[in-house]
Structures are given as structure tokens and as C-alpha cells.
Simulated scan of single mutants.
Amino acid sequence: MYTFSMKGGRELKGSLRYVVDKEVYIVGENGVTYKVAFNKLEPPSLVYVNGWIRKKGGTSNYASWIDTSGAGFSSSWPRTVYAPSRIDIKTKYEEFKKGHYVYESAHYRFVSDSKLEPKVVQRFAVLFETTYKFVMELPLNASGRYLEKDEKFKIYLFGSYKNYVRAGGPAGSAGVFLIRSQTVMVPLQVLGLENRSGKWVFVRDKSNKVLSHELQHQLTSGTSFPAWYIEGSAEYVASTRYTHGAYHVVNGKTRVFSYVRSKDGLPDGSGRRLGGRVEMMSLEEFMDLSYRRFAGIQANQNYAVSLLLTYFFYHEDGNGDAAGMKAYVKALQQGKQEKEARKYLLRGRTPDQLQEQFRRFCSAKGVAIDFD
């Protein structure tokens, strides 16, 4: 944290989060966000802000805590990502209100309404920490890598499904990411836990699909991505084969198409089950959908197509090195408008030409898309 000095003698201690049109957005110690114009800052604080902007690769018109000047886009695409060699769990019961229990791993803080044995927490923390490692190793500069040193991602756990819904979890869901509070909420049963005689025990491995999907949202939040990429990138992580403590990216194309197409779904129960033919709007209109429309009518199909489109840009387009997608993500993280950033995905093609290439890619793997 930094203490910002303003004209008139006022001081504000906090973390710099954004610069937008020569206005500084500061998150104070109390968690409240304050907006301060450049011309209100004393010279030393203005020097600090300008240095921060240069370091993050932005301008005085736009910069965020997401650093686009570093190596976040330069690594090669991972093939297999293994869990950290050691996962330590700390209990911090004294830090929360009565009846709630706090546990911490390297990158997560778990707040549970039920008391859990540390060894039980350690068992499911493997999924959380491995997902964190997987998303960080994707060369797409995930915002989660820039979390403040003393911060952790917040996970709320519920022993009662009724309490989960009461706290804001959608009825019928197995987990949710809440944008406003930047938290993931999960019923304990989804983690493979069962309450036996008042004690929570680990009984079985569950499909990681829902959790890894929501964790990816949490780890990449903070950039104004369009609906198709918000959900397509989360579905990419969710559909990647996971065994206890490892994500296997190799042979991903076959799994992705089975995940989308198979009427019976994958062996772990996940999948979109669309079959071999899809009728939809033009690709350009699909990429322009608001989140509300995307998640409304034909949501299941929209999620499936967004996964195929994301996979196409990650692994098939151009030289198969995700160069267009990296440039697209970087442009959005630097505050460019989506229409301007999309030129990096088009790479000189018209929207119709891109649509035809994507159609052929899907058709070759057994999904025939009829665009309107």
C-alpha cells in the first residue's frame, strides 16, 4: 500500500487499482474505492502514479493493476500441469465470527460455516491450488497473478445447501462466482464431502467441472471481456481433463469436441450434449452478444459454441500459437474497446471469412454449424 498525498493536506493510504482519463482509482484500507484527479495530487504522489503507469504498460488514459508490460504472454502453452509439491493448510479460527472457520492455503482463504479437519481441507485444496497454477501457466496474463502480496482469493463453503442459496448461490447450482464481492461460493457436498455423525469426511472425488469453471472466472476477473470469451475461457479450463492433482492439456481437441457433441456426456458426467448439428446466428452477431442475451435463450448451446471458438483461437488459428488471442487479451487489458481489439482476432479477414474458417474447423470434428 502507498500513502497518497493530496492538495489541501489530505492523505489516503491504499492500493492503486486503475487510472482512467487522468483519474486515479484507489482502494483504501477499508475496502472502499476512491477516485482522485491527477491535478489533486501532490507532486511526489503524481510521480508515483506515473511510475506505476509505466510499469504496468499503460497510459494516463488507461492503466490497471494488470501488468501488460511483463512476461505474462511469453511462455509456451502448458501440456500437463501438476499440483504444487506441497500444500500447507493454516487454521485461523480467531479471525472470523463465531460459528465460522477460516483455513488458508498458499493462494486461497476458505471460510466455512462448518468445522473441518485440516487434512480434509488439504484434500480439496489440491484442486484449488492446481487450478490456480494451471490458469497462471496459460500465456494469457491472467489478472490473478497480480494479486496483492497479502491478499488471497476468497472461497465461502456451506455445509447446508439452504445456507448456500440464502447467501446468493443460484438454486440448483453447484457453485458460483460473485463478481461484486470477487468470491466463489461452494456447497461442501460438491467437494466430495459428507457429514457423518457431525463430522465432515471426504468420501469420493467429484467432477471438477463446475468448480474449475468458477475458479477461472475469479482468476481472470477485472478485464472487460465479451460474454463469449468470459464463458469460453472458463469452459476451456472446465473441459480440460483433470485427475487428482493434474490438468492434462494434451489431446485436448478430441475431449473438447466430445464434451460439446456427445449425447451421453463425458464419463465424469460433464458435457453440453449438443449432438452433431447446431443452428445459430452469424458468428459476428454471436461475438457481439450481451451477457444477458448470451446466458438467456439457448444458453447451453452458447456455452458450447463459445468453448469451440475459444479453442479455435487458442490452438488452431494462424500458426496455432494463440498469437491473435494474446494480442486481443492484451489490448483489452490495456483498456481498448472490444471492437478495436477484435482486429487482432480477425487478422485481416472479414467476419464472414472468419466464420467460414471456424465452420470448417468444427465440421472436421463432427459438429456441423448452420449459421443464419
Rank of each mutant, 00 (worst) to 15 (best):
M1Q: 06
K7A: 07
K13Y: 04
R17W: 02
Y18S: 06
V32R: 03
K35V: 08
F38M: 09
V49M: 09
N50A: 05
R54F: 00
G57Q: 07
T59E: 11
S69E: 08
S69A: 14
P78V: 14
T80S: 04
A83N: 05
I89L: 12
K92R: 15
E94A: 12
K97M: 15
V102S: 06
S114F: 08
V121L: 11
F124M: 05
E129P: 00
F134C: 03
L138P: 07
N141K: 02
S143N: 01
G144V: 00
L147E: 02
G159D: 10
Y164S: 07
V165E: 02
R166K: 10
P170G: 07
L178T: 14
I179P: 05
R180P: 02
S181E: 14
R196C: 11
K199R: 13
V201G: 03
R204I: 14
N208R: 06
S212R: 11
L219A: 14
S221D: 13
G222Y: 10
P226I: 09
A234Q: 00
Y236G: 05
T240D: 01
R241G: 12
T243H: 13
H244R: 12
R255E: 09
F257Y: 06
K263Y: 03
G265Q: 05
G265L: 12
L266I: 12
S270W: 10
V278R: 04
Y291R: 14
R293P: 01
N300K: 15
F313L: 01
H315S: 03
H315L: 12
G318C: 03
A327E: 02
V329T: 04
K339F: 10
D352V: 15
D352Y: 14
A364C: 02
